[in-house]
């Protein structure tokens, strides 16, 4: 396979993967209004755990890591996603109920830095700063894939996973649950006054989003075969924020557009460009600045993103005669006091 097609499939893989990551952050930030500045930490945990459970026992590999259970694809991926959700559960139980948005963001960004510190320094966990490598290529043995044919194959797998994840997410965002998430985003006080236990919904949103983060991370480690701390500097979270804000907060299709523009063109394409010998790394630095500036320009001039959140129109068209609904008009439904007391007991 020529180098050109290798690039194309690599870019395609990252497009799909960042679509998944963007959907996960979107349900947290875009739908529910949780500023999860630790998002990349959940991606990393998903990646490490997916890799570690699929690898053989660490003895004899020259690496140090926990687990090592030889669990095949796609079960390892699901375990990675669930582990990220479990981490989110702990974090949410400690901090979500107690803090307003910006303090929560402070705690989360701290968490992200601490997770990074621990994974980087504590070698027995995930091999420290070297990270995991020689992670088995999923199904490569069964399908007799070579290093070359694995890349297009796994880009396809990522596409299928992204499609499934998109289908599931659109079910959630279109449901009453998604509507309650958006009500909380718009005004948590009103949602609470309407009887919505805000904490429980924010927790649900955190768990769903973190599962997506974990799965997205799991795909990354299996695609590249390795994962180390340099792949998930805390600033990476910002890139995913840029994807959803540029694409359109609260819109799943916008995520694809955002992934395409930010992730593929600005982050991965420059990695394939030749660097300037006199200034090593300059392209990446300028690139990161461009993403930051792009996001700010977008927030200022088009805060709804390239593809804005759709208005969810009522299922009955404007021309429908009203006769069918007049019958139930204004059934305020006052309940007797006895039900009040029942509610109090429950």
């Amino acid at each position: 396979m020529s180098a050109f097609w290798y690039y194309v499939f690599t870019l395609l893989f990252f497009l799909f993967d960042y679509f998944i990551l963007a959907m996960g952050l979107n349900i947290q930030y875009g739908e529910t209004g949780i500023l999860n500045f630790a998002y990349i930490g959940f991606v990393a945990i998903g990646a490490y755990v997916t890799g570690a459970v699929s690898m053989p026992d660490s003895a004899g590999t020259g690496q140090h890591y926990i687990l090592g259970l030889n669990i095949p694809f796609p079960i390892n991926l699901i375990i990675g996603g669930l582990t990220a959700s479990a981490l989110a559960l702990i974090v949410a139980l400690i901090s979500l109920r107690r803090l307003r948005t910006d303090y929560l963001a402070m705690v989360l960004i701290s968490l992200s830095l601490v997770l990074y510190d621990i994974c980087n320094n504590f070698v027995p966990l995930f091999n420290g700063a070297d990270g995991l490598y020689n992670v088995p290529e999923p199904m490569a043995g069964v399908l007799k894939l070579t290093t070359n044919s694995f890349v297009p194959f796994f880009a396809g797998v990522a596409g299928v996973v992204a499609l499934i994840m998109w289908f599931l997410m659109s079910r959630i965002t279109r449901s009453p649950l998604g509507r309650t998430f958006r009500a909380i985003r718009d005004d948590a006080g009103v949602a609470s006054a309407l009887g919505k236990g805000v904490f429980r919904y924010q927790l649900t949103s955190m768990l769903i989003g973190s599962f997506y983060a974990g799965v997205g991370g799991g795909l990354i480690i299996q695609f590249g075969g390795s994962f180390n701390p340099s792949a998930w500097l805390p600033g990476e979270t910002f890139v995913i924020f840029a994807v959803i804000i540029v694409g359109g907060v609260g819109n799943n299709i916008g995520m694809i557009a955002g992934s395409l523009l930010v992730e593929t063109l600005l982050v991965h394409l420059p990695a394939f460009l030749p660097s300037i010998p006199s200034h090593p790394g300059l392209i990446e630095y300028v690139d990161a600045m461009v993403i930051g500036i792009l996001l700010m320009v977008m927030l200022w001039f088009r805060p709804q993103g390239m593809i804005p959140e759709r208005i969810r129109r009522s299922p009955i068209s404007a021309s429908t005669p009203l006769s069918s609904v007049t019958a139930v008009a204004a059934r305020a439904g006052a309940e007797p006091l006895s039900t009040v007391e029942e509610g109090g007991a429950s």
Binding site: F37, G235, F238, F241, Y285, A288, M289, G292, L295
Partner: peptide
């Protein structure tokens, strides 16, 4: 808040 977060990325890379 997101702008300050983005600013952090920009300053770091500067």
């Amino acid at each position: 808040l997101i702008v300050t977060f983005g600013l952090s990325l920009i300053i770091l890379n500067v």
